[in-house]
């Protein structure tokens, strides 16, 4: 487990959202935090190397650039490994998790539109004929601005 100093938390919390859209963004961040730009860059590069940062960049809004849904499958224990691999390899699948429940495999699947999504779900049901939930988002209640560390 990677341990963060209070200054690391301050830095990561500051840049989870509202990252400056200008030519020299880390200098702006450094000014706000009373650090030097070189120190900010060096620490973030270290944290990235250590695996503390999943990614840096733009987070896109779901269902604006296409269609997506949350899918759950209830897979018998002995078939989980094989089915999980198969699902992972399918086009449009991301955020694939095993969860402790009768519905034990949970993933998000994306497509160009709902028609392509339905094709992909049919394909999954052919390869993995287990009880399936198709749970598209109807309403978000949270503006995802990151998660306070």
């Amino acid at each position: 487990m990677i341990r963060l100093s209070p200054q690391d938390c301050e830095l990561l919390n500051r840049i989870q959202s509202d990252f400056p859209l200008d030519s020299h963004p880390f200098a702006t961040i450094a000014d706000q935090l009373g650090m030097s730009e070189a120190a900010v860059l060096a620490r973030l590069q270290e944290l990235e190397q250590a695996g503390a940062i999943s990614r840096f960049g733009a987070v896109f809004t779901p269902n604006v650039a296409g269609a997506s849904t949350l899918v759950a499958l209830a897979i018998p224990e002995e078939d989980i490994e094989q089915t999980a691999e198969l699902v992972n390899a399918m086009a449009g699948v991301n955020h694939n998790y095993l969860r402790e429940h009768r519905y034990n495999l949970w993933f998000v699947i994306t497509g160009r539109d709902r028609t392509e999504l339905d094709d992909r779900l049919r394909h999954i049901q052919q390869a993995a004929p287990y009880p399936m939930l198709d749970l598209p988002m109807e309403q978000p209640y949270h503006i995802d601005l990151g998660f306070a560390l």
């Binding site: 989870q16 990252f19 809004t61």
Partner: peptide
């Protein structure tokens, strides 16, 4: 279209 720009820890 973009929800936010920043790091994802």
């Amino acid at each position: 279209i973009i929800r936010r720009i920043g790091v994802v820890p």
